[in-house]
Every structure is written in structure tokens, then in C-alpha cells.
Design a protein around this nucleic acid. Structure first.
Lengths: 206, 206
DNA sequence: GTCTATATACGGATAGAC
DNA sequence: GTCTATCCGTATATAGAC
């Protein structure tokens, strides 16, 4: 193990470069030569450590995916927090994640389309959402408010949509909104508080 | 020109097949051989008509993109409709489009990331949104309601996020929501009315 | 216009020296 | 562990016959 972050082992340098490029360009458009160059090592070494492009990709993908659902399961199943606290925590957690790693959701979504089985078999079992304490609390509140459509899925979609889509569509939003990178992040920061506010209104109100 | 839809010219058959495969798999993962096979013609013919994979892709991309923004410009700039009517019309128009063509938004978003210049130079100039009548009406209403954050961009993002993201994330939603393809479409149909309702509340209320 | 056959390039992977 | 050199499959593109 190396001690400086700038002096990682070759294996780590390859993984870091691979994560970068795979996440930005996707599997098919990524060249193993590009990974090797960015890692500052030789192409042969990549295969020495990871055997193939495919295996390297799987590794990176699962690590990315893990990062994406880490925290969610415990957040959703927490018995002690209220519904509103969970909503605030989810928005806060994801927006922080995404500001630091804005290419992640598009990568995962693309993977979900081209090869759904892998990810779906890993973490996204049905119990993660439908049987969570979060959905129990949400359903109860929706019934109490006598909503015309009390399907909790709609509100879960709304929450995650408002959080995630702006990052996925960021090139477009910067263009039509005339925002610099810095301004874009600022706007996303605003949404950290605004989204829970909107969602709570949507749930508790008329 | 052929008269039956099942007996298109070779050029049209290639374009149709290309749109299918490019839209589903993206540029890098698409093989021109697959396009040729699906079109029922020979690989050489594809190059005879379109010179290269790249040019064929550009063509399909711009047509897809055109379809995606068609109607929006006129909807957004319509001087006669009210703010609420525009919101309803936008949700209605896009959800119809997306139920019929669910792969389109992800295709466009990927293109926007890998090669932003092409699409951004084509249709998404600043005036399409920021100087639209829609945003004028929206800004006015937000100021009238004395919102803490009256930036209209937030509400535009919310509207499009709630419409588009569920289609992009459909494999995931079907899984965690335990929905069949048919049930998924049903849920999206529900959103056609629900989204305008939520957005209007968000704008007009507290 | 449409095909078969082929040239050419590219990218993933390996052999083998150090 | 790391490199250079190279193999080999695959994919795009073209030549040329019909």
C-alpha cells in the first residue's frame, strides 16, 4: 500500500482511471488504451491485473453502484425518523453525492438499460423500497390525506426525479438556463432545501 | 416512392432500422451490420446511401431531436394560452410522445453528454426557454406569490424532471415497483393528469 | 441499385523479454 | 510487475461485378 495519494499502486491507478472513463463514456465507447494512458501504465498491465475490459468494467460498475445505494437502505428503513425527516435526509444525501459525482446517475441508468440483470440482481430487490419503513409511513400519510391517487410510487418518483434529472440533463440546463458550471452547482444547492419543501407540500396538502 | 408501408425504399428501410438500433444502443455499441440486417439489405448499400456510420447517425440524431422539440417551441411561445393551460399541454404532449417512444430521452441525453455542440447549436438556443411567453407568465406568477426562491428555472426543471425521469429509469422503476410493462404505462398515464396538478399547486400555493 | 469479395483500421488480448 | 512487440478478431468502408 502506498502512503501518498499521488503515488498509488498501479492496480489502484488503473481502477481510478477506469472509473473515470467508463463513467463518462460508457462501456462501448471506452478504449482500454485510453484507460492505460490515463493511468500512466501500459496496456498489457491492465490485462495482467484485470484479465479483460469486461471484468474491469464489472468491478467499477459494482463499486459505483454500491456508492449509489449506500446509505439509502438504512435511510429508508430507519424506524426512528419521521417521514419528513426521511425526505430531507434523502434529498440532502443524494444532492451531496451528485454534486461530487455528477456522471454517476447517467452511467447507472445506461447500465440498467443495456444489462439490467446484473444490477437488479445485486441491490435492487423489491424490499428495498416497497417494504421499507419509508413507504409505510408515506402510504399511511397519503391515506390520511384522502389523496385521489394514493400510490406511494408516484411520490417516490417525484422525489427522485427532481433530485436526479437536473444532473443528468445538466448540459442542456446550463445552456437553456444560461448558467456557468459554478452557477449550476449553486442552483443545485438551492434545491437541497427546496425539494423537501415541495415534496412535503405535495404529500401533506390538499 | 413506395406505396405500402411494408414496402419502403431501401433508403427508408435503412433509416428506420438505424433509428431503432442507434436509439436503443447508442452510437458506439451499434454495428452497421446489425442495421443492414434489420433493414434486410446489404452492408455495402448502407454506405452507398449514407457514406458512413457517422453520417447516418447524425441524420437519425437530428431527426430524433427534431421530434423531441417539435411542438415545444410553439407551446412555450403561445400568447393565447394561460400558464396553467401551458403546463397541462406540456405534460400531455410529452407523456404521449414518451409512451410511444420511451428510448428517445436517454438517447438525446447521452448525445448531449458525448457531443453537446451539435444539438445545442441546432435548436436549444437561449430564447427557446428564457425568453418564452411561458417563462414570462411563470415569473410573474412566482413574484405575485412572493416565493422565497422565484427562479422560474426550478419549476421548469421540476416539470420536465417528473415527466421524463420515470421513462429514463423505467427498468429500475418496474423492478422496485413490481410493475409489468402494461402496469408501468398505466402509471405513466396517471401522471399525465397528476403532474400538472402538482406543479400548479407548487406555483400557486404557499 | 444491389450484391460479393476484400482492403484497411482499430481495439482487445497475449507472448515473451527484462 | 512492467514493458515492447505482435497477434487476431471484428467492424467500417470500398472495389468491382451484375
Amino acid at each position: 500500500m502506498a502512503t501518498k495519494t499521488t503515488d498509488l499502486s498501479s492496480e489502484e491507478k488503473i481502477k481510478a482511471a477506469a472509473r473515470n472513463i467508463f463513467t463518462k463514456k460508457g462501456y462501448a465507447a471506452t478504449r482500454t488504451r485510453d484507460i492505460a494512458r490515463e493511468a500512466g501504465i501500459n496496456l498489457a498491465l491492465l490485462n495482467y491485473y484485470f484479465r479483460s475490459k469486461e471484468q474491469l468494467f464489472e468491478l467499477v460498475m459494482l463499486e459505483n453502484f454500491g456508492q449509489f445505494i449506500s446509505g439509502v437502505r438504512s435511510l429508508l428503513h430507519d424506524k426512528k425518523s419521521t417521514l419528513d425527516e426521511k425526505i430531507e435526509a434523502l434529498a440532502d444525501f443524494y444532492i451531496s453525492q451528485l454534486i461530487g459525482n455528477p456522471d454517476l446517475p447517467l452511467f447507472i441508468i445506461n447500465q440498467l438499460h443495456s444489462n439490467p440483470a446484473v444490477l437488479l440482481s445485486k441491490g435492487f430487490t423489491r424490499d428495498i423500497l416497497l417494504r421499507s419503513h419509508f413507504v409505510k409511513q408515506l402510504s399511511q400519510e397519503l391515506r390520511a390525506q384522502k389523496k385521489k391517487n394514493p400510490n406511494p410510487l408516484h411520490f417516490v418518483m417525484n422525489l427522485f426525479s427532481m433530485i436526479i434529472l437536473p444532473f443528468i440533463a445538466s448540459p442542456l440546463i446550463k445552456q437553456v438556463g444560461n448558467l456557468s458550471e459554478k452557477q449550476f452547482k449553486q442552483v443545485m444547492e438551492e434545491r437541497r432545501k427546496l425539494i423537501p419543501f415541495w415534496i412535503k407540500n405535495m404529500i401533506h396538502h390538499p
